[in-house]
Simulated scan of single mutants.
Amino acid sequence: MTTSRAARFAAAYALLRGSADIADHWIQSDHQATTKGQDGAAGRWACAAHVASYTAVQGAVLLGGARLLGLRLRPGPVAAALALSAASHYVADRRAPLRRVADATGKGAFVRMADHGLNGAYLLDQAWHHAFETCAALIVSA
């Protein structure tokens, strides 16, 4: 990896990660947060609306930050990275798929933990997002 690719990766990851927290915790509406994991059309629509605003925030921060930093990002990798982030975010936020992954990997008890100041579902959700944001940053920096 060249220095410029490493710099693009580090910047892209920081921009994606920071914007994800803003979009997930400040931009997402209470309705989206409480409805997105429900079965049926209402849950799917709430999750899709959340992911749309989440992706818009990530895209704006990524492109704006890259411009301020003087990084040249190619449109194709940026679009692919944002698509990966959006799709993986939708899967996790529908909740049932992440519970199934947790069950299949022996983390079923952890994902259901909501005691002692911990919320296992939230922690696994965030770990999932961080992993895919890392992959997205790798795509951007390619």
Rank of each mutant, 00 (worst) to 15 (best):
M1T: 08
T2A: 09
T3M: 09
T3A: 10
S4V: 12
R5W: 02
A6K: 10
A6M: 15
A6R: 15
A7P: 00
F9M: 10
F9W: 07
A10E: 08
A10N: 09
A11W: 14
A12G: 01
Y13I: 09
Y13C: 11
A14G: 15
L15S: 07
L15G: 05
L16R: 00
L16F: 05
R17W: 12
R17N: 14
G18S: 12
G18K: 06
S19H: 05
S19G: 05
A20F: 06
A20M: 08
A23N: 01
D24C: 10
W26N: 07
I27V: 15
Q28T: 09
Q28H: 07
Q28M: 12
D30V: 13
H31V: 10
H31E: 15
A33N: 07
A33M: 05
A33W: 00
A33F: 03
T34K: 03
T35C: 09
T35H: 01
K36F: 03
K36C: 10
K36N: 06
G37D: 06
G37V: 08
G37S: 06
G37M: 06
Q38L: 15
D39Q: 12
D39H: 11
G40Q: 06
R44M: 12
C47M: 10
A48N: 01
A48E: 04
A48G: 03
H50K: 01
V51G: 06
V51P: 00
V51C: 06
A52H: 04
Y54K: 09
Y54L: 13
Q58R: 13
G59H: 10
L63N: 02
L63D: 01
L63T: 05
G64L: 12
G64C: 11
G65L: 08
A66Y: 03
A66M: 04
R67F: 13
R67Q: 13
L68C: 14
L69V: 04
G70F: 03
L73Y: 03
P75M: 01
P75R: 08
G76H: 09
G76D: 08
P77Q: 05
P77Y: 01
P77V: 02
V78R: 02
A79V: 14
A79D: 00
A81R: 02
A81N: 00
L82R: 03
L82F: 05
L82K: 03
A83R: 01
L84V: 15
S85I: 11
S85W: 04
S85E: 06
A87T: 14
A87I: 15
S88L: 12
H89V: 07
Y90T: 08
Y90K: 07
A92S: 04
A92T: 03
A92Y: 02
D93V: 03
R94L: 11
R94A: 13
R94G: 11
A96T: 13
P97R: 02
R99Q: 07
R99I: 11
V101Y: 01
V101M: 05
A102N: 04
K107A: 15
K107M: 15
G108C: 14
G108Q: 09
V111S: 13
M113C: 13
M113K: 14
A114I: 04
D115Y: 02
H116C: 10
G117S: 14
L118K: 14
N119H: 15
N119S: 14
N119G: 09
A121V: 00
Y122Q: 13
Y122I: 00
L123Y: 04
L124E: 07
A127C: 14
H130M: 09
A131S: 01
F132K: 08
F132R: 04
T134D: 00
C135Q: 06
C135K: 00
A136L: 07
L138A: 11
I139W: 01
V140H: 03
S141L: 11
